[in-house]
């Protein structure tokens, strides 16, 4: 039974046909396809996770956000879950503000001010950098999760299982995979709580307060689901799938480019880890970001 429908609180997602669809792919849609394919290759995520976890470089993270944004834009046109993103968007901004407030600058501050009797806020280049990095990380994660989990073009988890049968990406993806279900559950929970009289619309504060009731069942349900999912993956023996070979580029130049880029990336990550806060190497970050995209380009065979 197909579900979801226009209700008073429900969002309707319809497939829109692009006017370009009949006239061949545009440059943007080609890029979108390439990045989409990169995700499907199952390698995007591990690299993205490494990038998000181990770099503080704003430029590299910005690239990450752009790449994820392509996915997010793509998916918002076709698949559901767009509304869920709205709940996550304020978080990176909050992280930025709290970063500025809670991590005082150790270098020459640009602004200094007193909050209350005991707290002095010192905002300098290093604290701005740190807060921005954190903000972009969270933004990248949010967009990445959104892009991957609501991807309407294929079953990402399936392709990862098929191509890269490794425990880490499976576990990471299966966690991310719960989000669409969370989105669908959210609607069911809202309906149940409305009838129960717990969730009522009214003033802004009342609405926010009553929405608070949603968080607990959503979180708990997703934990329960992730446990059950782990059981199912184990019971279904999906770890035992033999991974078929990775998709290789047809073009020798693409292959060479990918190999060089991959090699350099391996070299660059420790460098980034070493320099971290004290030398924000923007150029290095930009190079890394470009190499990252090229690597994906080569791996997916130029967006075949």
């Amino acid at each position: 039974m197909a579900r979801r429908s226009p209700g008073n609180t429900l969002r309707v997602h319809r497939c829109h046909t692009s006017p370009r669809a009949s006239g061949g792919p545009s440059k943007t849609s080609r890029w979108v396809k390439e990045i989409n394919d990169a995700v499907l290759s199952g390698l995007f995520l591990p690299f993205a996770v490494v990038l998000i976890l181990f770099t503080w470089n704003i430029t590299a993270l910005l690239f990450m956000c752009i790449a994820s944004l392509f996915l997010a834009v793509k998916t918002s046109r076709k698949g559901g879950g767009g509304g869920l993103l709205l709940y996550f968007i304020p978080l990176p901004i909050m992280v930025f503000v709290f970063g500025l407030l809670l991590y005082p600058s150790t270098s020459e501050p640009i602004i200094t001010f007193q909050v209350g009797d005991y707290m002095t806020v010192r905002i300098g280049p290093d604290s701005i950098h740190y807060s921005l990095s954190n903000m972009f990380k969270l933004l990248a994660i949010t967009l990445l999760i959104w892009g991957i989990t609501f991807n309407p073009n294929g079953d990402v988890l399936f392709f990862v299982l098929k191509r890269v049968s490794r425990r880490l990406p499976i576990m990471l993806l299966s966690s991310l995979y719960l989000l669409p279900r969370v989105s669908s559950d959210a609607e069911n929970i809202i309906e149940a709580q409305k009838v129960r009289g717990v969730l009522r619309e009214g003033s802004f504060i009342h609405t926010v307060k009553s929405r608070g009731w949603l968080i607990m069942p959503l979180l708990r349900d997703s934990f329960l689901r992730s446990e059950a999912l782990a059981d199912s993956i184990t019971a279904r023996g999906l770890f035992d799938l033999n991974p078929p070979p990775l998709p290789l580029s047809r073009s020798p130049i693409g292959l060479l480019l990918g190999a060089v880029a991959g090699f350099l990336m391996v070299l660059i990550i420790p460098v980034i880890l070493g320099v971290m806060l004290y030398a924000p190497t923007f150029i290095l970050g930009a190079v890394k970001g470009v190499l990252f995209l090229l690597y994906q380009y080569a791996l997916t065979g130029g967006g075949r």
């Binding site: 559950d185 069911n188 929970i189 309906e191 149940a192 709580q193 009838v195 129960r196 009289g197 717990v198 009731w213 949603l214 607990m216 069942p217 708990r220 349900d221 329960l224």
Partner: peptide, 15 residues
Amino acid sequence: IVGYLPQNPMDIFTS
């Protein structure tokens, strides 16, 4: 007063 038991009982619990 309307009562509703959804298909998934977990949608009810919040505490």
